[in-house]
Design a protein around this nucleic acid. Sequence first.
DNA 1: AAAATCTGCCAC
DNA 2: AAACGTGGCAGATTTT
Length: 477
Amino acid sequence: MQFAYMDSPRLYNGVRLIDRPSPENVRRLDLGALPMVNEMNGRGIYLDCEELECLSIEIRDRLEGLEDEIDGMAGQRINPESSQQVAPLVFHELALHPPGGIKFTKTGKESTVDDVLSTIQDLHPIVPMILEHRGLVKILGTYSDKMPLLVDEYSRVHTTFSAVTTSTGRLASSDPNVQNIPVRSVWGKRVRDAFRSTPIEVLREMTPGYHGPPTTLSAIDLSQIEMVWAAHLSQDPIMMGIFDRGDDIHTRTALAMMRLPESVCCCRGKNPDHDVTGHGCPVWNEFKIKYRLPSKTLGFGILYGVTPKGLVLQIAAAGGPSWSMDEAEEFIAKWFGVYTGVESWVQDQYARARRYGMVWCAFGRVRYIPEVRSMLRGVVNAGLRQAGNQPVTASAQGTIKLAMAQVMDELVAEYQAYNDVICWPLLQIHDELLFELSTNIAEEFSQKVHDVMVSATPLSVPVRAGIETGELWGDLK
DNA sequence: AAAATCTGCCAC
DNA sequence: AAACGTGGCAGATTTT
Ligand SMILES: Nc1nc2c(ncn2[C@H]2C[C@H](O)[C@@H](COP(=O)(O)OP(=O)(O)OP(=O)(O)O)O2)c(=O)[nH]1
Ligand SMILES: [Mn+2]
């Protein structure tokens, strides 16, 4: 005899989609992901230290030149890393005025954060040099100088993934953090290029008796995963329609931001001349970097409660068009006007936070939101934004954690049992899994991982994922 | 001199 | 940055 209500079907390890707080369910979910987490922590990823040492030398060289030029223009010795030296120089001695006015840090000092400086970088050549200096020091200090100090005897970097650190069910990576290896800047990408598949001679050293082929890296990345979950959770028909058609929401946002007609992005496959969304299109790569990337930030920003003021500053910092607050407000309203179901779902989360002092994700992972009881509006609003964010982010983590469990138990176990086959889970980067694989099994294994990832959580819309394979991590894009 | 804080920036 | 969210880390500055 069945009960009258529908139990949600059990997914891998008996985990369920369940719309109420459920610590038992979350426990199953998290414990299931641990075997792969442990495997990753123990295995490490090969790092080409010589490559990074060369990079460090080049960066130091560039830094010296920059420092000379900066000092020359400033007319004094100045440390570009010291915001307390940079602020008086650019805002007062050089009298450069940000369009949005000088901003202040919470302790009342003049802020020289990138977002502000980039709005005045055309006013004086010293500004872009300060910004470049900061970027290079960051890469040098955090990555190219530091990482080689952390490798083991086989030149592998072992991070520590923690599953009990975040309030959203994400993993955290530390010592070193491998979830923020640069990828967006030209210099930064060279850091990522130093993470690569193990040279065959090192492989044989690590794995005596290995007679298989060399290895390659393979990354499987969930597509627009939080937007997909937002569509599923809210059941918004427009957003669901986008994913049902296999469309790309970040690209659509980009086109809207550029104020191009809908027809441009709806003509996919029909009018190749104007179809900037087609991957075969020669302008696609440029489009992706110049417009799709900022549109990701824009779309997630709106979904997670960006204010008109915040949006204006965000667009300006990205070097985009100069919008008024009214225009930003209108864009946000228009976005929620299109995805009305998402707007009401977000409002439901706010109401839930206010009533219960907590929200929960589709797996029953709870986040307490005590901020809603504060007397301070700013604190309350921050709490409400967290309330809108956690259910989406935590649900998306459910998808990848289930995949990690199933891939480890079923696929990695199988392939590691074969002779002369390397099948190593290396890293998890929130919605992406990185493996090192013998080249002869790379394609079929990656395809199987892909299939597990996209079917781990059956949603109202298709979950998609991309596979990229290559020797260098930096090549997987 | 070491510890704590502030500010800034890398990624998803 | 006062107000998209989640993290970790480093250099400068301040406190102990
Ligand atoms: N709130 C917020 N979340 C972000 C931001 N950037 C990334 N995320 C979250 C949401 C994404 O779904 C998830 C994975 O990041 P990705 O860079 O892979 O973006 P996404 O998967 O949406 O697009 P993709 O098709 O992979 O290019 O991380 C951001 O700027 N703000
Ligand atoms: Mn992704």
